[in-house]
């Protein structure tokens, strides 16, 4: 069976979602760990940003791979949602959930919100189109992009921090179901490890929530910057 035929099947579509999900989760973790250097001060964060920029063509390769992964994840999600809606044309008058979670029931909603946030986030801190603090493009004393100054000024603006806070809660809701699901979809979840694997998603979500929210909230509170 070719990989194309595999992907066309329901399990193949889910596997594509799981594999792309793993790449996206690894990216989100790496992105957070990089950003946490904001606590090390302006020099550390600006040097990190300058190092990423100096990758040149490699940076573009990474960006394109991430974009492709993101698109494949979305396409697989649209297919699965369409398939699943078609599978129950007549709804129940009464249906009581026994096991599912809020996060699982709202995956497509959180997915759409994350897409909108990702667009906003790139426009805000990568491209500088949305720049309420007016600090995009400033240079530090060593002539590097002053990412630190931009982040501090950005999150001292409370509406920006509010948007990021909501977005992080939504992202973590998505990850809490998705990260456990991918283990089942790829066939790694077994009777012996099921209860442990089911905690992977929520644990990862809490880790991301604490790490990612600590930055804008501590900046808004004036603890950093």
């Amino acid at each position: 069976m070719s990989i194309g035929t595999t992907l066309k099947s329901s399990i193949g579509a889910k596997a594509l979602m799981a594999v792309t999900g793993i790449i996206l989760v690894l990216f989100v973790i790496g992105h957070m760990l990089g950003n946490l250097q904001v606590y090390l001060g302006a020099d550390a964060l600006n040097a990190y940003a300058a190092k990423l920029q100096s990758l040149g063509p490699l940076l573009w390769v990474i960006r394109l791979v991430l974009l492709g992964t993101f698109l494949a994840h979305i396409i697989a999600a649209i297919r699965v949602v369409k398939l699943n809606r078609a599978a129950r044309p007549v709804a129940y008058h009464q249906q009581k959930d026994q096991a599912t979670t809020f996060a699982a029931r709202t995956m497509w909603v959180s997915g759409v919100l994350i897409l909108l946030f990702a667009i906003y986030h790139v426009l805000h801190l990568t491209v500088g189109v949305v720049d309420p603090a007016g600090t995009y493009g400033a240079l530090d004393s060593e002539g590097r992009h002053d990412v630190y100054g931009m982040v501090i000024a950005g999150f001292q603006h409370w509406p920006t921090t509010a948007i990021y806070t909501v977005a992080m809660v939504v992202l973590c809701l998505h990850v809490s179901h998705g990260a456990s699901s991918m283990l089942q979809t790829l066939g790694l979840r077994r009777p012996g490890n099921a209860s442990g694997f089911d905690k992977v998603g929520p644990a990862l979500a809490i880790f991301l929530l604490i790490g990612n929210l600590s930055m804008p909230l501590s900046i808004l509170a004036g603890l950093v910057g």
Binding site: K14, Q98, T100, H177, S181, Q184, G187, L188, R190
Partner: peptide
């Protein structure tokens, strides 16, 4: 439809078959 790991099936199965079998099938 395609499984999205709600595990409602496991909860109502009169023979209590665990959803880990779905992982094995995948």
């Amino acid at each position: 439809g395609a499984c999205s790991n709600h595990y409602e099936c496991e909860a109502v199965c009169p023979k209590e078959i665990p959803a880990t079998f779905i992982g094995s099938m995948n």
